[in-house]
Design a protein around this nucleic acid. Structure first.
Lengths: 202, 202
DNA sequence: GTCTATAGCCGGATAGAC
DNA sequence: GTCTATCCGGCTATAGAC
């Protein structure tokens, strides 16, 4: 096996994801990353041209993995409502267990330049987003698929994003941060609205 | 009138809000702010002890204004569904017209420390959040008010937060960024879920 | 591939004159 | 209140030895 030293590159990326997610691009120095990896800053420049390049490699790595998992769920053969339920659950699970992914995404929404946004939209999220839009259109043919798809993402992701402040807001319970509870709430809301009438649909 | 020079302080805060919102704490230097105001960096230290203090003054100013306007809407005398509709519209309007407020809030969710989160929760958002929870409980007595309140906020705010990437995603239309369209979509979703049946409940 | 050493810049903050 | 001048620390990035 000749793969003993070339995975330094992967180690750098993995730790960069963690650090950039935690503190943001400007608050992570090349020194910080080098320290985490256990090498000197100068050595890092052997693997990456500069800090920007390393950052780009990090977000691509982090986002691509999630996007492909979610796109898979949407290719499943099943009735639309069941597929939606699965998608919501999987999205909640992925976003919940990978805080770095979530935070990098939040940071990109804030500070990503237009070129990067376009890249992410077209090369990373497009496929999944289209499939999600088609799924909701199957459930309600008259809806606006773009708006509805965003609504689904918002319900799941915003719950997780607001966790740091929610713990101080009235009515907070431990369950509010659990995957099952969030996914169930979102699915129910999407099916029935606030009116908690009818079917508990599995 | 003796208020000619002491509003330098207010000018500093106003421009800081704009700059911190645009670029984030770490990416705005004291020099940048001083330049914007039209004074030298050293003069800024006459008005504020340090950069942190100035930042805190900025977010308090930005957040308090919005919170009080929204709390007002919730004190209105009207049927629950009408109040909810008004709240959603007002929230969408405020968040839409004040990008700085929105971005500062996003940044705080990412990088606010626990002490600041607690302060914001208790001193700035609590009142409004409680009232919103009580309102949804009026509409559905069996719901979880905390979760439902967050869901409402998420539907409105996430639409706006994702604007930079949505423009590159399939199905995007100009209307998707207009206050009326967003508020209407959110209200309908909350009332009926994805199923676009019954009442258009103006 | 990783090191030491260092260049060169930009940041927050202070001292003291006006 | 605002200025000029300056300190000093941290930052990205490079040069060149091993």
């Amino acid at each position: 096996m000749h793969v003993i030293k070339e995975n330094t590159r992967q180690t750098i990326i993995d730790l960069s994801i963690k650090l950039f997610a935690r503190s943001g691009y400007a608050n992570v120095s090349v020194r910080d990353i080098a320290n985490a990896v256990g090498i000197k800053p100068a050595s890092l420049y052997y693997h990456f041209d500069n800090k920007q390049t390393l950052y780009l490699a990090s977000i691509k790595e982090s986002f691509s993995l999630k996007a492909s998992v979610l796109a898979e769920v949407l290719q499943m053969q099943a009735p639309a409502e069941i597929k939606l339920k699965h998608y919501i659950y999987k999205l909640t699970e992925l976003a919940s267990e990978d805080e770095s992914f979530r935070r990098l995404l939040q940071r990109e929404m804030l500070d990503g330049d237009e070129k990067r946004m376009q890249y992410l939209a077209e090369k990373v999220f497009q496929e999944q987003f289209n499939a999600l839009g088609m799924l909701v259109a199957e459930i309600d043919p008259d809806c606006d698929p773009h708006m509805s798809a965003i609504s689904i993402l918002s319900l799941v992701l915003y719950h997780l994003e607001t966790a740091p402040i929610r713990v101080f807001l009235k009515g907070h319970k431990k369950e509010h941060d659990q995957v099952d509870y969030i996914a169930r709430h979102v699915f129910k809301l999407l099916m029935n609205g606030l009116l908690q009438t009818s079917k508990d649909a599995l």
